[in-house]
Design a protein around this nucleic acid. Structure first.
Lengths: 232, 232
DNA sequence: TATCTTATTGTATATTTTACAAAAAGTATA
DNA sequence: TATACTTTTTGTAAAATATACAATAAGATA
């Protein structure tokens, strides 16, 4: 059966996937929005999403949507909630599964394409209004992200390859909307398998901080060999 | 549009919902299985599930499936992962959303019906093989359940209305497959809003334990007023 | 060289967790 | 009725962890 036949009844009962792409810059967690170039909600902000093809597995669809907009491949995708309110889509019954991805903003060039006239990195604390139920979807995946930040080393997917402990601390401070003690944060971090780089921050007008990077190999080893549990 | 028309293409691209119903007895967390009375996988064990009707929201579909089998209403339903592998259903593309419910086994009478020749409470550590990808679905919702047991007071949905602290401890011991110290467990529990009943265990041939029940009203009040966080 | 700013270390205290001993409240048995 | 037995419940000391905050270090700048 060809895709064409399927598309004929997509808006009577169909399945889509929406992807919240999170990034971190200026001490804030951002989400990537597109200005929709087609109806419904043309001209309004939304997160990228698309119908799932009839023979396509969900993770495949998620990375397709991610790479169409960002050209990124090999990014881990996390499944979020599924939204199925019969009225969530004005043109018919569309159940949608939320995914989210964590990217380094500097690594990518999100460009307007046929789906989007414009793209925008919006700080999570300053979201504009969004098309469909996308506000709810973004908030829900953000809650998932915040939860996972506590017991999986995924903050390193948001931070630059080489980061300072203060940058890491500020990420958690933004996510949980709290202030933390530098000295104590630093002590807690000691238990995480980080590589202390022989390199320092540059172009700052004060004492430069040490740069670290996450030791993913050592992390995997620790998990396997001694049941290591990342915990913040 | 009538349901009939929809059903015509259910097996080309459709959406279902499967529900893992968990209960607790004999110190073990059990899941309710049905022996399927129709193809595919007729005669095999599975969890209850059904297609989602075209105008039906997901939580509604979930409680429909739950109440058809158990006659229970007013049970909180938790959404789990969504499974969309194109080959998961032998008769076509069926994406399914997992839900799980927590029930008190004594409160219900699960009966065989048109969908099921037989029902079975299977301990989570001793699952038989299951139809479709239901093993994966059950394990996934069980992982969700274990996670939620840590920071939401849902163990009380599994325990009897009146329970001893040892029964509660044994539930956690089964869930996390660990042994805990009675004295220390008891101390931790002190911070939870429990009602200490003026009642004791009966028909035991040793010192009877005190019975407690969860103070749901006080819990809600604490959450609102002082940001109380349940934590195990 | 002195000053400014932020990074980094150190230390003492408070809080929480853990291990384990002791006491209490029942039943069963002689 | 006394004694043993089993499980509940309380207590206490040590260990580990978290918190508050002072002190020092390493750069840039003037």
């Amino acid at each position: 059966m060809s895709y064409k036949i399927k598309f004929d009844h997509f808006f009577s009962y169909s399945f889509s996937l929406d992807c919240a792409i999170f990034g971190y810059k200026d001490g804030k967690i951002h989400v990537l929005l597109i200005k929709r170039a087609m109806e419904p909600y043309s001209g309004e902000w939304a997160i990228p999403g698309n119908l799932v093809y009839p023979d396509e597995d969900l993770p495949i669809a998620a990375s397709r949507i991610l790479s169409e907009l960002t050209k990124l491949t090999d990014v881990e995708l996390h499944q979020g909630q599924t939204f199925g309110n019969p009225n969530r889509h004005p043109q018919g019954r569309v159940i949608t599964c939320a995914y989210f991805a964590l990217v380094r903003i500097d690594d990518l060039v999100a460009e307007a394409d046929s789906w989007a006239e414009e793209v925008l990195w919006a700080p999570m604390h300053e979201l504009p209004s969004l098309a469909f139920d996308h506000k709810e979807i973004v908030e829900s995946t953000y809650a998932d992200l915040r939860r996972k930040l506590q017991y999986e080393p995924i903050c390193f997917d948001l931070l630059p390859e080489k980061f300072t402990l203060n940058e890491m601390q500020q990420l958690y401070e933004y996510a949980y909307n709290v202030e933390m003690d530098k000295a104590n944060f630093r002590k807690k971090i000691k238990s995480i398998p980080l590589i202390h780089l022989e390199e320092k921050q540059k172009n700052v007008k004060h004492r430069p901080a040490n740069l670290f990077s996450f030791d993913a190999d050592r992390y995997k080893q620790l998990v396997e060999e001694e049941n290591y549990l990342f915990r913040m």
